[in-house]
Design a protein around this nucleic acid. Sequence first.
DNA 1: ACTCTTTATTTCGAGCGCCGAAAAAAATAG
DNA 2: CTATTTTTTTCGGCGCTCGAAATAAAGAGT
Lengths: 414, 414
Amino acid sequence: MQLKAGSDLVRRQNRAVVIAALRRGATMSRTDLCAATSLSPSTVSAITSDLLNEGALAEQREFEPAGSRRGRPQIAIGLAPARAHVVSVELTHNQLSVGVSDYTGKAIHELDQRFSTAACSGEDLLVRCTQLIRVALSNARVEQPSSIVMAVQGRTDAEGRDLLWSPIAAGRNVHLADYLQSEFGCPVTVANDCSMIAVALRWLEPERYGRDCLAVLLSHGIGMGLYLNGRLFAGRSSSAAEFGHMLYKHNGALCRCGARGCIEAYAGDYAIWRAAHGLPDDALPPVELSGLDMRTLARRARLSDGPERRAYKEAAEAIGTGLASLFALTDPVPIAFVGSGTAAFDICEPYIRACISGSNSGGFDAHFEHQLFEFELPLIRQGATVTALLAVDEKVASGPDHLSSRDVSILEVA
Amino acid sequence: MQLKAGSDLVRRQNRAVVIAALRRGATMSRTDLCAATSLSPSTVSAITSDLLNEGALAEQREFEPAGSRRGRPQIAIGLAPARAHVVSVELTHNQLSVGVSDYTGKAIHELDQRFSTAACSGEDLLVRCTQLIRVALSNARVEQPSSIVMAVQGRTDAEGRDLLWSPIAAGRNVHLADYLQSEFGCPVTVANDCSMIAVALRWLEPERYGRDCLAVLLSHGIGMGLYLNGRLFAGRSSSAAEFGHMLYKHNGALCRCGARGCIEAYAGDYAIWRAAHGLPDDALPPVELSGLDMRTLARRARLSDGPERRAYKEAAEAIGTGLASLFALTDPVPIAFVGSGTAAFDICEPYIRACISGSNSGGFDAHFEHQLFEFELPLIRQGATVTALLAVDEKVASGPDHLSSRDVSILEVA
DNA sequence: ACTCTTTATTTCGAGCGCCGAAAAAAATAG
DNA sequence: CTATTTTTTTCGGCGCTCGAAATAAAGAGT
């Protein structure tokens, strides 16, 4: 059942609209805001004055940008950098990264730590995260973060509280969000790394990826983030969207996840390496593969039609079959392939396209457009930061806790 | 960008909440409505009195249901049957059906017509629909329908305007909605039949299917309707969710859709029949198969481990592989298997479960609960009717076109 | 230097929809 | 016939948006 509405909802919504407009476009005058939000000047005036009082917005009188026209000059308004600080945490293979940004989204500080994630228990993970975040905050001279988003390779619960399973760490059912939340006293969300890539792409290229965005991570494992009709696709009880674990072949090759026949068991780096070296498809996959190993494999695959080429072909057909199946469900969607695996994409592409165009994806236009991004980390960080900022925006929009704006100005005077 | 809000939105929303409450529970008093909507008594009073004036609601003083307690008796309020009439149209294999219901959802009239759909051009379809709807409306003594929903086997565009492709009719890109809309002067939506099954199940069993609902139609072809996190899953540019056309085997058996390796090319009735009779997997599938044919096949499959059993096993593994892949994306969801194919579900079930539990679906709880429904038509009709009614509700909630409630009462007096 | 024009922003009063409290309505209990 | 109980309506107030008018702050013209 839908929820009832009241004037409170209207206020929140319109404040949110104003904040959203400013989050996109650096600074705007009140007049610009009227145009962007289609709110009346009076309303924009009221809302901005409230938000200015609350410290969420700041006027920028300094930069009068020349354009000297007649009439009263516009006053540029922007988000107030100091209103909040957000933290993004990225847990990837053998690396933990932390980024601190101000409320405008400007990166203030970034910090990495490399260690063997495979040996990491849940407990270890909590401690390492806490420590690294603390250092980063202190380096950035931030007392109190307002929101933390942690992007992990692996499956989280649907509410973004727990890390259920990760291919890169031993811990299971790690209550990351609750722990960090009590450590840092601010809302924490745990998200899938590929979802964050999709968020970033949507944010960076709304024209192309605004409505629909499929991010496929090709690396040691295979991950996916999907926006469909403008909303993040997630499972019923977990972050799901586990493209890499769609079933490619019943009783097929052994996957890192323990199941058999997953796409990843053919298309992950370890699977390609395994197949290229003629190892049995239930061999325990090598834990560590250098970028050099894979580049060598790719070079051989390009040179001659040997076992390497066949391994890449099988990988491509696993991916192509998965995409074809996915597109039977969603219709073709613009794709961003991300990660080190994109370096061998030239080998895979024709096979992938053959799978998709031979299938019924979309029924009529069985083609897809794609882009390649070699490095996933910047995208993940961008996505996590944006997600954290939007969470703060929501809180700011709902106003200073249950005090009317009038009360606030009274408090400020006192 | 989100849209701005105003008092108009609040009014619409709260009227919608009231209407939604009444659509569920036959009749309620104003006090009940307060509890159900969490609106204040004053607001409920105002809204119901407006809706009564507009003829959307009706008081039912007749049935004072005994429960003689002290105090002023409650006045039962319900949707006014005469406020609107909706039409549901179902196009299935060799049959066109029309149902007419009043605003409370009560079926007033139903009408079927059987003919060879395969021979049907787009033009034919438009004419037949129009004629059958006209007859049904006149039989039901309904002057003007308020909403028509047509459920078709096949793929529609994302907006529910056109029938893009259907396995049961020759026409392509048939502008069903626009045509019927101009014929009957009311909003028309074209929807996928399996989506309507999912709508119906959600409506009938909200406890089980309210949030997530997977309807799988097993019959000549394979269809699917999916609700995920309370919203209908649909493709980017079409109704999509074409479970039957997920890719099971690259370059595999020939499917009705023209592609190769679709799940349907193994699990549709025609595919099972083809395999059981040892025909090549690119044989043109028989167009007509009687229920008797399939029952015979199933009986033989149960009796001995011959070609029939193998055909059902292959079918089940195609479905199981598809479900495993789907559940990698969505986590396991309660399933309703619908249609004549459910008669052989006892043969398939173990193989389907083997596929799913061998895979990584959901990561941790690789099981699913399911229900069987032999007859799809009643569910499709129910879903289409509900969809049509909800469309009317939305219009009713937004109020008499741009007149305030005061204006309306003035008009009524005049 | 002063006034006029232009453009941006704020202020003011009205309207709409919700809510709480009080009043009114309509029954039963005594 | 009055008191009690429960439902429903009425009334006044509040919060939010909006349109119109007022104010603010510039450049342009004389």
